[in-house]
Design a protein around this nucleic acid. Sequence first.
DNA 1: CGCATATATACGTGGAGGCGTATGTTAGGG
DNA 2: CCCTAACATACGCCTCCACGTATATATGCG
Lengths: 120, 120
Amino acid sequence: MLGSVTSNAVLEAIAEPTRRRILDAVREGERSVGDLVEIVGMHQPGVSRHLKVLRDAGLVEARPDAQKRLYRLRSEPLKELDAWLEPYRAEWSSRLDALERHVERTATPIQNRRTTKEQP
Amino acid sequence: MLGSVTSNAVLEAIAEPTRRRILDAVREGERSVGDLVEIVGMHQPGVSRHLKVLRDAGLVEARPDAQKRLYRLRSEPLKELDAWLEPYRAEWSSRLDALERHVERTATPIQNRRTTKEQP
DNA sequence: CGCATATATACGTGGAGGCGTATGTTAGGG
DNA sequence: CCCTAACATACGCCTCCACGTATATATGCG
């Protein structure tokens, strides 16, 4: 088995809007929990729990600074997501999209497959 | 307001492993619900519900064929995800990653930087 | 027309997840 | 030492979600 399964933890982590806001925040620099509490406008324990989820997914990393904990981004796990996205990227960039494919298909020489509305 | 919020529906949809398997399946070609039932090994109603979620997120599209419904991929919504990923991509490609940053920070005097396998 | 096939929807349930409140834990300051 | 600051964890509540089972809806066939 090669491809594992795109580590579900990462997807589940970023599926949460508040956690994405946290990620967007730490991407621009280290943030203390208190900073993040202000940024996302939620009670501190909630933020800490979100941070735990992000930590377990490997998406953030904490550095102690006195009583504070400065969180920073870890982008590696997002590579997985990027990799998963790869084949789909090929889909919208190099190939035609669903609608166009539909046209292509219906207009294709599929033997004498009379589509309902056919008429001489 | 420009950037909306990366349409939560898409993230929530692909956060589910079974739904990713469905996406992987329809990416390779149209699949009937029955096909997908076999592929993911789940009861039909479950698959239909997953398909509804994917449809609502705009990630798949159905085409009626007799009693069957052939589902195909719609990759457009994934562009959003790709766009959201953008700034993070810059993070791991152009900048050093957390680990290396850590090393850099702690071991600052980098100087004669011989790649490990180097030797006179 | 009934009957089978294929899919969608309704319903109930167990379990997970997000939240707030309360309480532990660790570090600094007087 | 005691007190405060900053954060993590425990607990209970509630909501949402994924699943299976049962039922509705639609299409094709005899």
